[in-house]
Simulated assay, not measured.
Amino acid sequence: MSFFNKILASVGIGAVQVDTRLEKSAYYPGEDIRGVIHITGGNVEQNVDKIYIKLMTEYTRESNDKKYSESFTLAKIRASDKLIVQPGEKLEIPFEFPLPLETPLTLSRQPVWLRTGLDIENAIDPKDRDFIEVTPHPYAAVVFDAVSKLGFRFKEATCEYHSRLGRGIPFVQEIEFYPGREFAHRVKELELIMHLERDGLSVLVEVDRRGRGLSGWLEQSFDMNERHAWLTFDSSDLEKGADHIAGLLEELIDSKTR
């Protein structure tokens, strides 16, 4: 019977089971993720080479006028070394690691998940998948509040391939806003790309301004109507609050829509 149980376990029947349970479901970039990996032994003894956790997301890449979704590993954590799991044995392995600053926010159903896996020789590796919510870091929250104070409304967020702007990862998260009444006659759309740092935040602000007259038509025809610039806020800037940041953003938008 043991021989046949081993054969079945090698294809995942009666094998080790893994279940990752997180301390909570929502985190912001830079915050520590804590949880426990629960392992339950199957019908036979199995040797586990290692237990790992991958933090994963997706981004869109365009090729030959077609768009493709690609998965990307933001971080990989080794949760244990080799161990032997006995039949029916229950193990608990705690883990903790910081959510990378590059982790995209889960706006517009952007997926971010943990994939827990066990490396077992000559067998299908058991896996577990746990989606998490990624909320704005306190620095980013100040910028979002500032944008709202200027009357802009959230439109959508997308993760797009961009090797140059990605800063170590192959994509950026583009966050788009509709203008409110004050800017509606000048701005079609406001787009932000944020790069979170330990002591502040860099924001690429792109203003898609409305064309006016012949010059506006020419700008739209030649894709010249988008204006962009970098704003860098250190912690002292952000501690001054959303009103201060809104003033700086308004100055920039005004300068790009004259």
Rank of each mutant, 00 (worst) to 15 (best):
E45K: 14
I175F: 07
R129T: 15
C159G: 06
S10Q: 03
P94V: 09
T106D: 10
L55D: 01
L192P: 01
V16R: 00
K90A: 14
G168D: 05
S80V: 07
A184Y: 13
T135L: 14
F152G: 01
S255W: 07
V11R: 05
P94R: 06
L74K: 07
T40L: 15
D119E: 10
R198A: 11
S71N: 14
N47H: 12
W217T: 11
G41K: 10
L190V: 11
I93V: 15
K76Y: 05
I33R: 07
K50I: 04
E23P: 08
Q17T: 13
A184P: 08
P29Q: 02
K82W: 09
G30E: 08
I253H: 00
F222H: 12
S80F: 02
N43T: 12
Y139G: 00
Y52R: 08
E189S: 12
F4D: 13
T73I: 15
E23M: 11
A157T: 05
I77G: 08
S235R: 14
L22D: 09
G30C: 07
K82Y: 11
V44G: 08
L114Y: 09
S236H: 12
S163A: 13
F152S: 01
D32E: 15
L91E: 04
P87L: 06
T257L: 05
S2D: 13
D81W: 04
E58Y: 00
G12W: 07
Y52T: 05
L101E: 06
I175P: 01
L150D: 00
D145L: 01
Q173E: 04
K256S: 03
T103Y: 00
V143D: 06
G35C: 09
V205K: 02
L101V: 05
I193N: 05
A246E: 02
L91C: 05
